[in-house]
Design a protein around this nucleic acid. Structure first.
Lengths: 193, 193
DNA sequence: TTCATTTTGTGACTTAAGTCAATGGTCAGG
DNA sequence: CCTGACCATTGACTTAAGTCACAAAATGAA
């Protein structure tokens, strides 16, 4: 089991050796090939997933059949569907590996047990949620800037690495614009500056 | 001190009499007139605010001077700026009372103490965060539906009460469209159906 | 009731982005 | 080296929504 999870948890709380042993009991290591799905629309998501290596996208397909990417998940991030995970309802999302990836998964049952018996995990989870909420809010704020080129610039600043690893049509989908529009935006940026 | 807070907490966790006494020690009751601000851009937000009665809006002013409404807060909801509250950084938001309102506020210091000594509050806070994250995500999803009338219909379904209490130009701002567009959308709905 | 302020509605015009369709590039597998 | 799948670009055209300007309601304080 890779150390990335422990390292990330340590960014928030103190971890003793016995805590690590506990974590190792609860998490399962899993490898996925590029193109594999963690889950799809209609599934009940009873796992939480920590990305160890690779890259994931979470997207939804709307009534016109168009994909909208909600989130990319890089190593060290969590992915999944919190709503489905906590409520037990089926999900509307798809989570797909965009590269060969390694993850750690934990079932809802184990998750609840862990929260129950390990105060450090409770604390970690809380801080994770707080930061998650803030960053989802920031994502929402970015959609307010109506201008397409502005949105693209903002993404370049916050997640330059994602641009290198993901086809442009997915970037467009993440930013809420057509791939043609993104193409033109990029073109203008080269010519103008 | 009104009972709404206790009632809301009870939706998530069990509350004993002594818990209530504890809460009463930590929260402060406050009244605001219509037009008053909880805080403004540039302030450090070291309070969390529970809405007891009335109505609030959280908005941001972008580089063109345009307001974008992030959230309305009805009685029983929390408002403020979580990012600023947890990090201590200054906020970019404005929170304004849209009606004469009553709130309960708690300082960051008290908040942390409460989390520390009252497990029920920790639990409540966690569940609140989980639900908050899910609903912010849903708000983000709604911005993906490109069509203006669709967005308006969706708001009518989820928060019909807000429509009654808030001027239309604020609804437009919340939905990310100009007030003229909203006006036309509403008009078409009357004529078509 | 009156008057000022705030809010909403409409028409004319502009503009940013979407759509459609064709083209060209890149890369992996045979 | 060829082929097909996938991805990006570009041009022509369409369309939804924004902007501007003005008028009409609605509201609320005096």
């Amino acid at each position: 089991m890779s150390d990335l999870l422990f390292q990330k948890i340590r960014e928030y709380v103190k971890l003793e050796d016995e805590d690590i042993l506990l974590l190792e009991k609860y998490f399962q290591f899993k490898m996925l090939d590029k193109g594999d799905f963690l889950f799809k629309d209609g599934d009940a998501v009873n796992h939480a997933t920590f990305v160890n290596s690779g890259l994931f996208r979470t997207y939804i397909i709307d009534e016109h059949g168009t994909e909208h990417i909600l989130q990319f998940a890089l190593p060290g991030w969590w992915t999944g569907d919190l709503g489905s995970f906590i409520s037990g309802a089926t999900t509307k999302f798809y989570v797909e590996a965009l590269e060969n990836s390694e993850v750690l998964t934990i079932t809802k049952k184990s998750w609840d047990e862990l929260l129950d018996k390990a105060p450090f995990y409770l604390d970690y989870h809380r801080k994770l949620l707080e930061r998650g909420l803030v960053s989802t809010q920031n994502r929402l704020l970015e959609t307010f800037s109506t201008d397409a080129s502005h949105k693209y610039r903002q993404l370049m600043e916050t997640f330059p690495d994602i641009l290198q690893r993901v086809p442009l049509y997915m970037i467009a989908s993440y930013l809420g614009m057509s791939r043609e529009t993104l193409s033109r935006v990029r073109n203008q940026m080269v010519n103008k500056k």
